[in-house]
Structure formats: C-alpha cells, structure tokens
C-alpha cells in the first residue's frame, strides 16, 4: 500500500534526473548520473515565470480573502444589526455554489470590466469563491473567544476597528493560518478559471504553464517530468512544515480541491 502511494512519485522524480535516452530505453532503470540540468532547463523555459505568477496571485488572493473575510466574520460573530441573518445565509449559501456554473458569465463580466487577461481576472473570482468558506471557518472561531477580552479593550478607549485589529487578530492566528493554507491550496490548484481568464503566456499560472509545457516539450520527457516535480514541491513543503494547520483547516471546511 505504501509502495503503491510512493512509487509513482519516486518514479517521476528519479526519471526527471535521467537523460532522455536513458528514460526511453529503460523506463524503470536508475540514471547513470543525476542530471539536475533538467531542472535548470525546465526552470529557464518559462517555469520561473509561471512560478512567480502563481505565487503573486496566491499571496494577493490569500491576503484579501483572509483580511476581508476576517472582518466580515468578526462582524457576524459579534455585532447585532439589521439584516444579519439574511447576510449570513447569503454568505453560507455561497459554499454550495460550484465555480463551473459561473465561469461563462464571469468571463463575459471580466471582459466588460477590462480585467480579462490580468492578474485581477483570477484574484477577484478566487477571492469571491473562497470567502464563504473562510468566513464560515473564522466566524465559528471568533464566537468561541470570550467577550471579556474585547470589553476591557473598549474600556481602554479602543474602537471596533482597533479592537479587531489589535486584540482579535493576534489571538486568532492559528485559525487564520488554517484559512490561509486551505485557500492557498485552492489557488495553487485552480485550473478552469486560469485556463479561460488568462490568455497571455507571460501570465500563466503553474498548472496552466505545466499543461502547455507538454505541448512545447513533447519529446523532451525528462525535462517535462522535472517541471512536474517543481510544480508539486511548494505544497508538499508547506504541508510538511505546517501539517497541523493544514489538517485542521481541511477538516473544519470539509472541502475538496
């Protein structure tokens, strides 16, 4: 069982270190010499660019999702106001909506807003579709924070915003980290929007860049496999470093990429 899980990954990594001839003549064999050049060549043939794009889009999307989402979740958790239930229900129902259903009108909308083929064409829909989950996750956490902490802050002369910013945010770091990780896993993975809303090669994200890579490199198999490995690494590393938050966020949301 463990072999079944690990061997395909091992095969890709080991094959990515071969020459094409070694790979073609013996798909299972070991390379005579580890060829890290394949990685350099994959990186130089556009991967560096895709990586940068993905990271940029990821960071901006995560920051907007988490900050805007936390504010909204806080308000829903703490304040009483007219229309609160309707707003909460609207946001919650967003969890049920599949991105595929929105893709065609979104694409027309992005063209109208002149956002088509910009980073914003991915960032804004990504944020929109991930906010319901983040709000849901953070709201239940904020509810569990004792009110006394904030009350003393108000007595010290803080207003709603500074209380939120100075008191709530710092003590909610673990749940914010969970939300950030789960959403960034989504952003790193996302394929459909990135395929349709971006046309310019210099703005491709990693998954799209990777699938175009195959077209350009059809017979340079080992460089392609090196590209696949590069694409897989960041999330594996993030997962190994932050396993706890990773699993906590996923189980709280019960969502699947």
């Amino acid at each position: 069982m463990t072999i079944l899980v690990l061997y395909p990954m091992y095969w890709v990594v080991i094959s990515s270190l071969k020459t094409n001839n070694e790979f073609l003549s013996d798909p299972l064999g070991l390379p005579a010499k580890l060829r890290f050049e394949n990685y350099i060549s994959a990186w130089n043939q556009g991967f560096s660019r895709y990586f940068l794009n993905s990271i940029l889009i990821n960071i901006v999307s995560v920051v907007i999702t988490v900050s805007v989402g936390a504010a909204c979740a806080y308000s829903l958790a703490r304040f009483d106001f007219k229309g609160k239930n309707i707003i909460f229900f609207t946001i919650l129902a967003g969890l049920l909506l599949s991105p595929q259903v929105a893709v065609l009108p979104l694409y027309k909308l992005l063209i109208r807003l002149k956002l088509y083929n910009t980073y914003w064409a991915l960032i804004l829909p990504y944020v929109g579709f991930n906010l319901p989950f983040s709000i849901f996750l953070m709201r239940s956490y904020f509810i569990s924070i004792p009110r006394e902490i904030e009350e003393s802050a108000y007595i010290d002369g803080c207003n709603a915003f500074t209380t939120f910013y100075k008191i709530i945010i710092p003590i909610s770091k673990p749940i914010i980290a969970s939300a950030a990780i789960v959403t960034s896993r989504f952003f790193w993975n996302e394929f459909l929007f990135a395929l349709i809303f971006i046309e310019d090669r210099s703005k491709y994200t990693v998954p799209i860049g990777l699938s175009h890579f195959r077209n350009a490199l059809t017979t340079d198999y080992t460089t392609m496999l090196a590209g696949i490995t590069i694409a897989a690494l960041p999330m594996i590393i993030l997962f190994l470093i932050m396993q706890k938050q990773f699993i906590k966020g996923l189980t709280a949301g019960s969502v699947k990429g």
Binding site: Y107, I111, Y116, I196, E199, R201
Partner: peptide, 21 residues
C-alpha cells in the same frame, strides 16, 4: 506582441475577438 500556443490559440482567438482589446 502576444503569443498563444497552437491548440489553445484555436479557442482563445474566438474569445479575444469578442473583446474590445
């Protein structure tokens, strides 16, 4: 100058002609 590779080109050009840019 912009470049779109062969297969996606066939799909993308339809989209692009519908846009103002």
């Amino acid at each position: 100058m912009e470049v779109v590779s062969n297969d996606p080109f066939k799909e993308k050009i339809k989209i692009m002609l519908g846009t103002e840019n």
